[in-house]
């Protein structure tokens, strides 16, 4: 009978049984009261309001999860950077050393390059070349050979003396 109370309220009883149950209720105040109370409970429970979750609760959850996502992105980026750095640092270091070497060598080379030649010395060298050329041509035309000691005395010696004389005053001024 008790199971029928709920089936009756849920409208689950077949028509014949429903009629029979209603006849019983009409003659039994105890069961009638039971059905009344059951209906009151069901209606009371269904009348309870659908409560709304306060927005702060949802926001707290979403804020926390979004922060977690952002942190995880940062962590992954950091890990990726570390991985990339560990893979690249040796080649990068080697490249830096090579660049530094090239730069320093080029700087050193520039500082040790010879100064522009003195015009007087250049002129003297041109004179020597001219004299030697003249001697060489004269030798070819006459078939004679100029002796080395003559060249040393007549050509190399005067040029050497001239150069020495030119260098002398600059040494004096340095002193």
């Amino acid at each position: 009978m008790e199971a029928r109370v709920e089936a009756y309220l849920d409208d689950d009883l077949p028509v014949e049984e429903r009629v029979r149950f209603e006849q019983i209720l009409a003659g039994d105040t105890g069961w009638e009261a039971e059905v009344f109370l059951a209906r009151q409970i069901r209606d009371g429970l269904r009348a309870l309001p659908e409560l709304e979750c306060p927005p702060a609760v949802t926001e707290a959850v979403l804020t926390r999860t979004r922060r977690e996502v952002r942190d995880s992105w940062l962590e992954r980026f950091h890990a990726w950077m570390q991985q990339q750095f560990s893979a690249l640092w040796q080649p990068a270091l080697a490249m830096t050393v090579v660049v530094l070497l090239v730069v320093s060598v080029s700087l050193i080379g520039r500082s040790t390059s010879p100064p522009p030649p003195d015009p007087a010395v250049a002129q003297a060298l041109a004179d020597v070349k001219m004299a030697l050329g003249y001697v060489s041509q004269a030798s070819r035309q006459t078939g004679k050979v100029v002796r080395n000691d003559v060249i040393a005395e007549r050509v190399v010696g005067p040029v050497q003396n001239a150069l020495n004389a030119r260098q002398q005053p600059s040494d004096d001024t340095q002193r």
Binding site: E50, L51, C53, P54, V57, T58, T65, R66
Partner: peptide, 17 residues
Amino acid sequence: QRRFERSVRKYQHRIYG
């Protein structure tokens, strides 16, 4: 994340109630 947020918005009131 979007799916999670959708579920939160859909079921929050039911769970709270």
